[in-house]
């Protein structure tokens, strides 16, 4: 039974959500019995900026380089998820299957080489 094992995952999910809520509930209770300070004011609830007021809006445009790294990550993740079924059956198979996988990986390694050559992997230029 495959599904039976995943019922246990569901139980663990419920407990994993409950576990950090316990200390948070303790913190909430402390505020209920007036043991924990809970008087926020304008300065306390402003964002932390090393003593000066925040100058500009926070949500600014970021470099497109981050997007490239994320895309590279997605591509290699998909590659790995394709390779895991091969890894499991590999010990039962001969060398011929290795060549098929080699073509798959070399095509992607060419992409990595291309990115390297055009300096897309430099964090700072």
């Amino acid at each position: 039974m495959i599904v039976e094992q995943y019922v246990r995952v569901l139980i663990l999910v419920i407990l994993a959500i409950a576990f950090p809520l316990l200390p948070l509930a303790g913190s909430y209770l402390f505020s209920k019995i007036n043991y924990r300070p809970a008087n926020s004011n304008e300065i306390k609830s402003s964002i932390y900026e090393c003593g000066v007021e925040a100058a500009d809006i926070t949500w600014r445009q970021f470099n497109a380089k981050y997007f490239l790294y994320a895309l590279g990550f997605v591509i290699f993740d998909v590659e790995v998820i394709f390779l895991f079924p091969w890894a499991v059956i590999h010990t039962e198979q001969a060398f011929s299957i290795l060549i098929k996988v080699a073509i798959f990986v070399i095509v992607l390694a060419f992409g990595l080489f291309y990115a390297w050559r055009w300096r897309a992997l430099e964090w700072q230029q």
Binding site: P23, S27, R36, N39, E42, K44, S45, I47
Partner: peptide
Amino acid sequence: DAIKLMQKEVLVPDIA
């Protein structure tokens, strides 16, 4: 430490 952290004030930024 855990008890100390529980006693601390919880701040949420206004504009968050």
